[in-house]
Simulated assay, not measured.
Amino acid sequence: MHKINPPGRPFSGRPAKPRILLIARLLAVACLLLFVQTARANCTATMQDVNFGNVDLLNPGTLTTQAIATVTCTKSAARGIAQTFQVCLAVDGGQGVAGQFTPRYMCPSGASCTMTTANRFAYNMYIDASRSTIWGTTGRGTQYREMLNTPVSFSSTESVNATRTVNLTVYARLITPLSNVPPGQYTASFAGGSTALAFGTGSSCGSLRGIRFPFTVSATVVKNCNINKPNNIDFGTVNPGDTNLAGSTSLGVTCTSSTPYNIGLKPSNNNTAGAGEMLPVTPGGGNTDRIPYQLRSGSGTNGAVWGNTATAAQTGNGVGGTGSGLLQNYNIYATVPSADYHYGDYQDTVTVQVNY
């Protein structure tokens, strides 16, 4: 054990100076470690999924949605010192198409999404409510420098390790004209290196860091069919002895792409074989006549019968098709065997039913 003699007395044993120097060095290292820990800033981010919900391509309605990105920063300056972090959030084009920004794409859920993937669903994300400025990243050229950017400020009265959270709104919109994609679930994943956070304690965010905030963009395309009401079939003015009357009209059907459908025609008497009856428009006067007619999918008296046994799974005696997203036309024919009935106007109502 080393001893230190009182002042004015000679030393005995080895001098203690090396021990004093050792203590001084330990203190210096401790101060250095404390400085590094205090200066280490910290911000993190999370992001809600962007969900467009159910989308009807034939009747799209609202094409927009939004989500919230949340940034949390921890103060590293001591009490008595104010501190502001400038925070930026950046995203690329997403799953498999990192360089594609205008527009971005969702792909069929579970499919590998590339620039050549079929049935891609176009959308984009923006940093403003007017949806005019695309949310992008500084790493993809000047045209994609837009980022979510906000300051996170701490007052001087807050102590070190205090936290502050801010929410930033991300705006999204489906791109029109809407892609003619089949019904189903569509997604785009922003995982791995597709997102990055940058923050700095100055007036800029500094460089992007490996801090991620993964999220998913999704939409569900629902199947649907629209019917264009056909014109009436008018046999015109006929003589009592006329036979084999024929008339026709055109039916327009628009169904989402790849959607199978079957069309049935039902007269007001509910005859499943498309054999209807026209009744007097103005009843009375003892006229109880009913003029029979037959609905057909082919012209002439030998044309195929068009009835109402069709279902979503079976064509039956109806007419079937597969949607393309565009208008598809079908001719409806009707024949009357004989017009040998009382004078007057006759009519019937036929219901068109599209099963899908």
Rank of each mutant, 00 (worst) to 15 (best):
T216D: 10
M106Q: 06
C107V: 04
Q95L: 08
E158H: 05
P267F: 00
L34Y: 07
S207K: 00
K266P: 07
P108Q: 10
S189D: 14
N231H: 08
A28N: 09
V166E: 06
T84R: 01
T38L: 09
I332Y: 01
F85H: 05
N228Q: 11
M278I: 07
G323W: 01
Q314E: 13
I233F: 06
D234E: 07
S112R: 10
T70Y: 08
F11D: 13
G274M: 09
N5R: 13
R209A: 10
W306N: 02
C43K: 02
I233P: 06
K229C: 00
K17D: 11
V336A: 03
F11V: 09
T243D: 09
V55D: 05
Y186T: 04
V55M: 08
G93R: 05
L279N: 10
P267L: 04
S76A: 13
V336Y: 00
G184Q: 04
S203N: 14
G298M: 14
S250E: 10
I291W: 06
H342N: 15
Y343F: 12
F35L: 14
Y341A: 05
P151L: 14
N51K: 06
G136Y: 02
G247Y: 03
A246D: 07
Y346V: 05
T195R: 06
T150M: 05
N224G: 02
T351V: 14
G320D: 12
T201G: 15
M106E: 03
Y330D: 06
A191W: 09
G318L: 11
T117Y: 14
G94K: 07
R14L: 12
I211T: 14
R104I: 02
C255T: 09
G94N: 10
S248I: 01
T72K: 09
V305I: 15
F52N: 05
A172W: 00
V354M: 12
G303T: 11
Y186C: 10
I263E: 05
A129W: 00
